[in-house]
Write a protein that binds this DNA or RNA. Structure first.
Lengths: 89, 89
DNA sequence: TTTTCATATTCGTATATTCGAATGTATTTA
DNA sequence: TAAATACATTCGAATATACGAATATGAAAA
């Protein structure tokens, strides 16, 4: 996907360079999840999860759909994420 | 390669999350280079290049061989690096 | 409308990262 | 040995990141 230069690619790595964000992204590979689902899967406070989700959204890695009072987050480029993580198997 | 968990993988991303370090790594994909070669390729001060190389070495991404008064740096896992960057083409 | 539930934002503080300038350390050459 | 070359390390200041606590928002249920 259109990320040719160093700054874009290193910025992308920076977003994935936090264990919590990496966990979130990995969980989202299995499908949409709302914030409380993610919070149950990952040991972290609600505000912290929200903060990381916000950064992921800012960097165009996730988006969400409102479902009632919940927000269901999903990966915007699941194949990119999958391809990258595949390298570490 | 042997990087199972979130912490290891996110730490690896963190090392690549700086434009200068990513540039260094990309240049080293073309083969060994000594510090002054790298400095010529990348617009940065000598001490700064050294600092980034030191971090790359600490994280087991590069190593070097002494050649006279120069140090020739090279990638320890060039295929891993190549495979990761390939994803962004 | 009030309350409740799900999530977001703000704020303060602690910690980490980055860089340049200066200095240190080998190694080689004179 | 002394000077030069190549690179590393240290230090301090600026900036960035991370987190929890508290508070805010917004949708739905009562």
């Amino acid at each position: 996907m259109g990320m040719r230069n160093y700054k874009n690619i290193s910025a992308f790595f920076k977003v994935l360079s936090h264990p919590t964000r990496l966990m979130i992204v990995k969980e989202l590979l299995n499908g949409k999840k709302c914030v409380s689902d993610i919070r149950d899967l990952i040991k972290a406070r609600q505000s912290n999860i929200s903060q990381h989700l916000s950064l992921l959204k800012l960097n165009n890695i996730v988006a969400y759909k409102q479902k009632g009072k919940m927000k269901c987050y999903f990966l915007k480029k699941p194949r990119l994420i999958r391809d990258i993580l595949k390298v570490f198997l």
